[in-house]
Each structure stands twice: as structure tokens, then as C-alpha cells.
Nucleic acid binder design. Structure first.
Lengths: 217, 217
DNA sequence: AATAAAATACTGCATATGTGGTATTATTTG
DNA sequence: CAAATAATACCACATATGCAGTATTTTATT
């Protein structure tokens, strides 16, 4: 299997060295190279769709049209093309934008060649999303940042009851919840009864709906 | 530099093979091993803090106390310890929980040994957050809120099954759903069984969660 | 017309769940 | 300190639910 790749970078030096490095393995065919997002779009449109690259190694900071814009524009147009963003810095604002735009991976340029090759395979064959660890760290921070404020319920449901409710939402049965919290299933049922009363519901489904709607989970 | 590591896994076979593999390099010192979260906590508390591991390879699914609970408990207690979660499946609910709990990395058990070794170095030396690509994909999906693959599940549910599912989400029992659709409760149950199979779930709560998440309601 | 897919209906069984109780032991709070 | 709240544990019963079957009728689709 030969992977059909395009490279987009404004520095010709980068294009050449990157293409040489990944070409070396013989598993990669460089379909074409572009110097910025606009150039990339133009070349893509000018070529028959069956010759399109499967994956694009996309630099982010480029004149005329940056890599994120390019991915955003292309992503809906041709949904069979994958994108790995390449960047020098681990800039979290751009990470988020790139993900929104439709990027499938996000690597630092300093990564070893075999890491990049593996990343290409991961994306094309396994639908994975390879990220450099330092970038993944940003992603995790963003993720854990997008969190909840469970204040308004705290007044009604006790801490323990919230824990129980979370178990219910996870789809666990009484036994499983009990095991997770090191208490008896009987206790779990008592809690759940109390929760139902406080929430004015009378089944798991209703409680779960309420929990999800109010983002207590 | 020798890295001081602990291994937590409920299967002794896993503990042994993992420890042997990563010990082989000579760069790793296995400080101790534990068979579940509780065991890990106990051993950690019983040892002087200057002998603590720098990083813990933590299984997720374990009896008594799972890996996520363990990390959550420890993370605030001893903030100098890092955690890499190891799991067989790429379950996105758990990924989110693990991140919230304070995990620094999240790898599939099937990863190659040198990948795991690199991950350990990344976490300890560069504050990175190594993730297996398939797991990073989940993280990105969580971040962007766009679930591409799950959209087409809808097409697999027939019209009637969707009506039934809506009834379930409303919190109705079989009898009520049957009355609403002028069919027998038996038929409702058959439909629900089929729905579960198609959605790969096995309870109302799970089905409702999926329906809400994908906005089929 | 033949076939596949969907909708319909039923049975039996083991387990899960909701309801309505009782009761003891912290912990908080006025 | 007294009272309220939370957490814990248990019992018993009726009903709901999940699972594994079987089977007929409608409705596309080819």
C-alpha cells in the first residue's frame, strides 16, 4: 500500500526536506506540494478527484491562506481527505481552531520521521488522531477546562447522591454502583429512592434525562 | 536517569509481562506493583514519600477500586506523581473521566513497548501527554463536539424503531408506548431488543443517552 | 415472483427495579 | 446540646426489564 500524500508549507526548504524524508521509505507518494492554503486549494481543484491525496501534511502559519483556513474550506468539500497539521509551536488557540476545522492529527515539526510516517498510517488506516504529546497535553487541558458548574443542584442533591446519580447515568446497575463506592446495593437503592423524590421523578430514564439536561454529569 | 515506576493491574499476568518488558531497557525501576486502586493507595501510603514512584502505569478496569478513582484520589494528595492510563478499549466516557481525574497519558495496552517507554519519558521530562491515536481521536471528538461516525447510526434504525425509541426517551414503560402506537407491548419489547442490538447497548439508560447525545429526539 | 427487511405478536425465565417500609450511625448546624 | 441531614443497611413484594426464542404478516426491492 502506497499512501498518496500532499505537502503544504510556505518554506520551500521545509517542503523539500520533509518530502525527501518521508519519500525515503518508499511507502509514500507525494502527489503534489503547495506553498500556502490558496495554492493548495487551486491545485486540488485543478486535478481529477481520483488523483486526490489521501492525506495532507499541512503547515499552519502561511501567507495568503493559513493551514487552518485551508482545512476548513476543504473539509466539507472533499470529505475523504485527511489532514495532519504540522507546527513549530504548540499553540493551544490554534489547536482548537484546527480541530474545529477538521484536522485529524496535530504534530510538532520536530517529530522524528518514523513518528510522522506512523501518524500517516494511523490516520488513513485506523481513523486515529495522532498528536504530539505536548499538544495532547493542551487538548486535555482544553477538555478538562470545558467543565461544569454543578452549584445549583448541590443545594438539593447531597454529594453522595450526586455520585450515585453519576453511576446511574453511566448505565451501571445497583450492584456496580455499590462496588464503585464500596457500599451495599441496598444503600444505593435507598439513595436512588431519595434522589427520585428530590428530583420528582420515578425512574432511571427520567433521572438520567434530568441529569444530562442540567449537565450534572 | 532511571525512572521510578509503579504498575497497577488486576491481572498478575499483565503485571508480570509489562514489568518484564519495560524493565528490559534498564532505564526503569519498578518501585512496586498493585492489583487494584485500593491496593495501590494502601501501598503508597505505607511507603515514605521520597520513595514514591514518579509515574504509575494504571489499568482502568479493576475490582475494588478502578484506575480512574485511584488517580482521582491520589492526584490531589501527591501532586508529584504522574499517571499513564492503560486500557484495552478506547472508551470515550472513561477517557473524559480519566482526564478529569488527572491522568497525564492514555494508551492502549496493545501499544509497542518502546511507545510506552517513550510515553513515560515524555510525561516525566517534557510534561507531555502521550495518547494512542485512536484515543486522541476521541479526545478531539469530545473537543469539537462533532461526531462524524455516529450520525449514520440513525439510518440503521427504521422509522418504527425511532418512534419506539422516542417513547423510551420520554420515560414511558412498554405498556404506555404500546398504547401510544396501538400495538402490543410484546411488539414494543421486540423493537427495543432490536434497537439495543443496532445501537450496541443493553439498557434503556444507555439507549436514552445515545439518543440524546445524537439529538434523535 | 422471489427475496429481504420491517413490523407485528407471543412465551418463559431470570434479574433489575420501584415502592414502602425500618433502623443505626455519623456529621452538620442552629 | 438538640435537631436535622446524610449516609449507611436491610426486608418484602409487585412490576418492569433484558434475553432467547418462535412465528406471521406487510412492505419494499430486485
Amino acid at each position: 500500500m502506497v499512501y498518496r500524500i500532499a505537502i503544504v508549507d510556505d518554506k520551500s526548504q521545509n517542503r523539500i526536506s520533509l518530502s525527501e524524508k518521508i519519500n525515503y521509505s518508499g511507502e509514500i507518494e507525494i502527489v503534489f506540494m503547495a506553498r500556502n492554503g490558496k495554492d493548495f486549494l487551486d491545485q486540488l481543484k485543478a486535478m481529477p478527484q481520483n488523483k486526490h491525496p489521501q492525506l495532507v501534511l499541512m503547515d499552519i502559519d502561511m501567507p495568503e491562506m493559513n493551514g487552518i483556513e485551508a482545512v476548513r474550506n476543504c473539509h466539507n468539500l472533499y470529505d475523504d481527505i485527511k489532514y495532519i497539521m504540522l507546527t513549530v509551536f504548540d499553540d493551544d488557540d490554534k489547536l482548537f481552531d484546527a480541530i474545529q476545522a477538521g484536522a485529524d492529527g496535530y504534530l510538532l515539526k520536530e517529530e522524528r520521521v518514523d513518528t510522522i510516517l506512523n501518524a500517516i498510517k494511523e490516520v488513513i488506516e485506523k481513523q486515529g488522531a495522532p498528536m504530539s504529546p505536548s499538544i495532547a497535553r493542551k487538548a486535555l487541558n482544553l477538555l478538562s477546562g470545558t467543565k461544569k458548574e454543578e452549584a445549583n443542584v448541590q443545594t438539593t442533591l447531597s454529594d453522595r447522591e450526586m455520585e450515585i446519580l453519576k453511576g446511574v447515568v453511566k448505565g451501571l446497575d445497583y450492584k456496580k454502583i455499590a462496588d464503585e463506592l464500596f457500599i451495599s446495593p441496598h444503600t444505593v437503592r435507598t439513595h436512588i429512592s431519595n434522589i427520585y423524590e428530590k428530583l420528582h421523578v420515578s425512574s432511571k430514564v427520567q433521572a438520567v434525562k434530568m441529569a444530562l439536561k442540567n449537565k450534572w454529569v
